[in-house]
Design a protein around this nucleic acid. Structure first.
Length: 268
DNA sequence: AATGGGACCTGCGCGC
DNA sequence: TGCGCGCAGGTCCCAT
């Protein structure tokens, strides 16, 4: 799923749905998706109430009473779905039941995602290694961050140590909109290109959030419904369709091992 | 420092 | 119809 816009959507929706609810019981059906001993994981959460929902990059944080936080990384196919007991599926790997009988299910087809109960989420190694949030940067700062970076721009955008929250879809879409070749070394972007790319990153992320994310395969919102940004994708998954600017066919090519969609004629 | 490959998993669509 | 292959929105770890 889940790049910044999808995680942010789930964060906003779960904030309304979960705040104030008290956890009665945590059922770990697949031990490998929780960090540490399942029994300890469950015990750390049970009896606590939901205070707030936060996000850092693609990591979702459920802040609980008594100083604990549930950290959730959805990776490729994780879902957090709130509802009634009957809404569980066979892909529900962890089920968190609240005292009123409603549930938060963690569903995951591929079992890559992780749930962890922590005391200090900001001290998590994953969190302290993250780059800045895109929304906290400016075009000028972003452009300066590209200086001296000889790596190709697209893998750099996907590097969470560089900037947090951008994934494969939004990297491709932002590069297309900025007309930047995904294989171009980052330091070779002109100042204008660097700033343009940053503005396109921010606008594509904002537009995707306002559409509640892109539901291509597994990603769903907090009540199980889909995000609609996929219909606005200009290149991602669009191999063979015509570029909206120049009619050249969009191609897919692996760059840094990841499928990359772009217009070979517009993007320079 | 940067890049490439494999690992972690399941399941879908495609070509033969 | 069935099978094998490639591919999938993420991240980590290792080798070069």
């Amino acid at each position: 799923m889940p790049e910044l816009p999808e995680v942010e959507t789930v964060r906003r929706e779960l904030a309304r749905l979960l705040k104030g609810r008290r956890i009665a019981k945590v059922e770990v059906r697949r031990p490998q998706v929780v960090q540490g001993e399942p029994g300890e994981f469950a015990a750390a959460l049970e009896g606590r109430s939901v205070r707030a929902l936060l996000r850092r990059g693609k990591l979702l944080l459920v802040e609980l009473s008594g100083g604990k936080t549930l950290a959730v990384h959805l990776k490729m196919t994780g879902q957090l779905v709130y509802g009634e007991r009957s809404e569980r599926s066979e892909k529900s790997r962890v089920v968190i039941r609240f005292t009123d009988g409603t549930e938060l299910a963690y569903n995951d087809q591929r079992l890559f995602g992780r749930l962890e109960a922590v005391d200090d989420w900001e001290a998590m190694p994953f969190v302290s290694s993250l780059g800045p949030e895109p929304f906290h940067l400016t075009p000028r700062k972003f452009r300066e961050m590209l200086r001296g970076r000889r790596t190709r721009i697209k893998p750099l955008l996907l590097d969470q140590h560089f900037v947090a929250g951008i994934g494969n879809i939004y990297a491709c879409e932002a590069l297309f909109r900025a007309r930047v070749d995904p294989a171009k070394p980052a330091e070779k972007l002109s100042d204008a290109q660097g700033e343009k790319l940053f503005r396109e990153i921010v606008s594509v992320l904002r537009e995707a959030i306002s559409c509640k994310g892109s539901s291509l395969d597994q990603y769903v919102r907090a009540r199980g419904n889909k995000g609609t940004y996929g219909k606005y994708h200009r290149v991602y998954g669009k191999t063979g369709t015509q570029c909206r600017c120049c009619r050249t066919r969009i191609v897919r090519k692996a760059i840094g091992g990841r499928g990359t969609y772009y217009c070979p004629s517009c993007q320079r």
